[in-house]
Design a protein around this nucleic acid. Structure first.
Lengths: 327, 327
DNA sequence: AGTACTCCACAACCGTTGGTTGTCGAGCAT
DNA sequence: ATGCTCGACAACCAACGGTTGTGGAGTACT
């Protein structure tokens, strides 16, 4: 069964005669005749009753028509699904259980008709590679470098500054606390397995550890929560919006870090020249909902702090911002 | 976009390598390679990442895969929709507002997953033509001839004996009656427009009219119910299960005919050798639910009465039935 | 009734497509 | 290093799908 023959069938059914259908399809009447004849042969039935005034659907033809249209629709959607202009919006979120996925879900709730594909990858480097290869339309990442270090084909915007929580076991000294000051964490040992060497989140935790003299152990892949649950010393970090889950019987407590609150700075990055309408909507959405921080109550990696200093109180001359960011 | 190429794409995606897919499709590896290359070219994207161990879907490939399967499903269903074995069950009911349509709806309620197409035609002759042409699978009709007169390629079974009602206007002498004896109808004039000359329902009404000396007028096509509503003489017939509707303000009354009750004898007919599973279920259903009449309380056309005499009290020797029906 | 017209099918022809076989380079495994 | 397996490329050929030209059947109009 040939799709072009099906297209001809629908055209003839709509127009009522081979000639008009041929004109509509931009081919000769004889070609339409051949297509229909071939289709009828492959189906083993007659689809039209030919008369001197045109062609009328037979009963089989009437039965076949909606299926034929369904085929054309499916073909059209399949085609559109891989065209950069019309395909579903593909956004890299690194993992489905973290803040970036929540941010994308919030966008999807506001734009429920926009087809979205949530993609996961192994870090900012991979996300940038995928963006440059045209495989994805945007990605949420922590960009630690200077704005000027970003590939010139890409654009960025800060998206969300995610407060960190710590997770501790039942017998941990912090277990009953409603919050914990960042300086207090120096007394404990933070175990953050899964950190990839050279990754941007390694850089974040290294800087965090140095500033607050926290002892961070990135090794091991064993069951994190079982170990935390039994320890009076260990704790681990988790983003405020992350969906990490553990068995209820472990009795783990989740405690916000304050004074200052460490923030993991999520950016959205995208291809500068993107033509994808969905991507443009996502970019506009991110810029609109981004809330710059009260810079004195929080801790951010130094580069992000520099980038964001003027968000709330911009300098008198806009040029100064550029200069500052490039320094 | 070529359906065979889409089929090859799905095969490769499933098998993970071109060679296996080729074996599965019964063509050479090179042919698969060509099909995929052509498909990729027409889509303007790369669907597989080729390695020495096989082929892995790219992101576009993963996006495209469900659409590709949707195309194959649509094609398969389109094909099945016109194959005599698998197509929806097509049953002729003459009109959607009469008893036969109700009978088919009842069958559909009992078999909601069976796809059914309700078809209308212009009488038993046309239904038989369609059956012999293979356009439909079964039909509800009044078969007035002897069983032996039916085309030998067709089979039949009585399906339902539909009591007749009369419809009269507000000022008609029968307007308040809860029933009317058949003999009383001789006093009035029955107007049954729409009777086609030579049709089986003409034969039914002619025989009915003769036996009960009813004056039946088959002429005219004007608004039946308006005329009935204003008349003290006219009435018309309607089947007990028919869905005929009239404006409420006309005040028409529907009155059963009794002593005897005239019955319009619906049969189901079908092609003897039908392979269609739905058709076989319909036939079994009809045979199961058919209720033979209390022959003394009702009136049937003579031929139907002869056919049905032994349904309730069959003769001692089954052979005798055959003999009787052929006489 | 005759005639002209419209519509679709058939024939002949031809370029393109899609299959085959034979062969090669690339990458993984031993 | 050396096979081994995988997919791609080349050459070839049958078949498909398009074109133009023509004919038969049925409708519509005089």
């Amino acid at each position: 069964m040939n799709v072009e023959a099906v297209r001809a069938f629908v055209a003839v059914a709509d127009e009522g005669q081979f000639q008009l259908a041929a004109a509509h399809l931009g081919i000769s009447q004889q070609a339409v005749s051949k297509r229909i004849a071939t289709l009828e042969a492959s189906l083993g039935t007659v689809l039209f009753k030919r008369t001197a005034t045109g062609a009328a659907l037979t009963r089989d033809g009437r039965t076949f028509l909606p299926h034929a249209k369904a085929i054309l629709t499916a073909v059209s959607e399949a085609f559109g699904s891989v065209q950069p202009q019309t395909r579903p919006l593909r956004v890299d979120v690194l993992s489905r259980r973290i803040a970036s996925a929540e941010l994308l879900r919030a966008f999807h709730r506001e734009n429920p008709t926009l087809p979205i594909e949530m993609v996961t990858s192994s870090g900012a480097g991979a996300t940038i590679q995928s963006l440059l290869a045209g495989e994805i339309d945007a990605g949420y990442v922590y960009l630690r470098g200077l704005a000027s270090e970003l590939d010139p084909r890409l654009d960025r915007s800060y998206a969300y500054l995610e407060p960190l929580h710590v997770i501790v076991g039942e017998q941990h000294p912090l277990a009953g606390s409603r919050s914990v000051r960042a300086a207090e964490l120096a007394r404990f040992r933070a175990w953050v397995p899964g950190i990839v060497s050279g990754s941007e989140w390694e850089a974040f935790y290294l800087e965090l550890a140095e500033v607050f003299t926290i002892d961070i152990d990135p090794t091991g892949t064993e069951s994190l929560f079982d170990t935390i649950a039994d320890s009076r010393l260990l704790l681990t970090f988790v983003g405020a919006k992350s969906r990490v889950a553990w068995p209820g019987h472990l009795g783990l407590a989740r405690i916000p870090v304050v004074a200052p609150t460490p923030l993991y700075p999520w950016s959205l990055i995208w291809h500068s020249g993107t033509r994808h309408q969905g991507a443009r909507r996502l970019i506009a959405h991110v810029k609109q909902v981004f809330e710059p921080p009260e810079i004195d109550q929080v801790w951010l990696p130094q580069q992000a702090r520099d980038d964001l200093r003027w968000h709330r109180w911009p300098p008198a001359h806009p040029d100064a911002l550029q200069t500052t960011m490039r320094d």
